[in-house]
Design a protein around this nucleic acid. Sequence first.
DNA 1: CTCTTGATTCTCT
DNA 2: GAGAATCAAGAGA
Length: 198
Amino acid sequence: MATTSRRLRPKDFEGDAPVVARALIGAIVLIDGVGGRIVETEAYDREDPASHSHSGPTPRNQAMFGPPGRAYVYRSYGIHWCMNFVCREDGHGAGVLIRAVEPLYGIDRMIARRGLEDVRLLCSGPGRVGQALAVTHAFNGMRLDQAPFEVRAASEDVEVVVGPRIGISKAADVPWRFGLAGSRFVSRPFPKPVSLRA
DNA sequence: CTCTTGATTCTCT
DNA sequence: GAGAATCAAGAGA
């Protein structure tokens, strides 16, 4: 249950983006009681050409340069709301994109918002997560350790898989995408590990 | 100012 | 697999 694991505080988000992104796999995220287990994340930071923060603070990305443990929400393709968790305590412009969630709580509300009943498709993508959890710009900059957010650490060790990020043209080969091994709720399959011998 | 490009998803072919 | 929906940054004139 969500109440069995420790609630994450800002200090838990002070690490580098890839470290936090990996640590968030298996964590529970809820907005107004609706959500589930994080099964896919991607890391971004200022040195990364693919990151919104790469060219410094702007009105849109200012949350990324603020305190860690807060949300950075942006509009994607003029249609979708995508949510990041801001990390690092030094205003570096680092964050973790929440790409997929395994629906566990408030599934009926997610179904209503998404207009689908296939649980597997409710939160399997950053735009889908935004719609299922009713994310909007109103959440931009808000603390993740206060209502309506509830973020809890993974209650047990989980096996994490890594791969290149999705939907970007710059630094597309950087392996900063993390996923829960074997999860059916990721947005896309992870590349199979390179076999050393045929 | 105009032009291009997206950290995407859905629908139709 | 291709195209649309739809808008805010970012780049360039």
